[in-house]
């Protein structure tokens, strides 16, 4: 039978007694110092609240102009969706795809997945597919690059500020809030604690 008495450090393979954490306590591997788990106060509520907020701001950031430009008497305003069109029409489909996946689809799918898993936990309903969804949320994480995109925006902003007047649209601020809430959500989403809850929800103990 699967045991909950032990865990194995996933970086150095040390066998450890499963940490029993009080609120606010953290567990680290004694040998390689890898962070294993943190028990956040009201962790599930926070995950659900941050994920829903991030989702709302992500969807809002699609709706308005993202960046505006004023140069040599010409005005341009683009939304995020228009920028995909421009990339695809200029024969750089691969870049458009990478951009679409890493900046939007990965965070969007992760957030929808997190909301689904944590709603099931909150209502204590063993819905179908919850464990498979959580598995994919974990696998997708390295490919989320939305926060790097923000640095990219700021760098481009400084690069063109000498050429033209740039103004940040409503979508830009909405996107910043989305990234902040997404990162807050991923910070309080503890993998070990989540699977402990799912183990109980599906009565493996």
């Amino acid at each position: 039978m699967a045991s909950t008495e032990y865990i194995i450090c996933h970086e150095c393979d040390l066998l450890l007694a499963a940490p029993v954490l009080g609120i606010g306590e953290k567990a680290h591997c004694p040998r390689c110092k890898l962070h294993l788990s943190t028990h956040y106060r009201n962790g599930s509520d926070k995950v659900l609240a941050f994920a829903s907020s991030a989702l709302i701001f992500l969807l809002a950031s699609m709706a308005f102009p993202f960046l505006g430009l004023n140069a040599q008497g010409q005005k341009r305003e683009i939304s995020l969706l228009e920028s995909f069109d421009i990339l695809i029409s200029s024969d750089y489909g691969i870049l458009a795809l990478i951009f679409l996946i890493m900046v939007f689809l990965v965070p969007l799918c992760s957030l929808l997945g997190i909301v689904y898993v944590y709603t099931a936990i909150k209502l204590w309903r063993p819905w179908s597919g919850v464990k498979a969804v959580m598995k994919w949320v974990t696998r997708l994480q390295p490919w989320n690059m939305s926060e790097i995109f923000i640095i990219g925006i700021l760098v481009s902003f400084i690069k063109i500020v000498s050429l033209a007047d740039v103004n940040l649209g409503l979508s830009f601020w909405s996107f910043i809030l989305f990234v902040l809430f997404l990162n807050a959500c991923l910070m309080v989403l503890d993998r070990y604690q989540t699977w402990l809850l799912l183990r109980r929800l599906y009565s493996y103990d």
Binding site: L69, S83, S90, L95, F149, I153, S156, I160
Partner: peptide, 14 residues
């Protein structure tokens, strides 16, 4: 990936 995003944004804007 920063520079790739910079290129993407500039290409979309300019």
């Amino acid at each position: 990936m920063i520079d790739i995003f910079v290129v993407i944004i500039l290409a979309a804007l300019i």
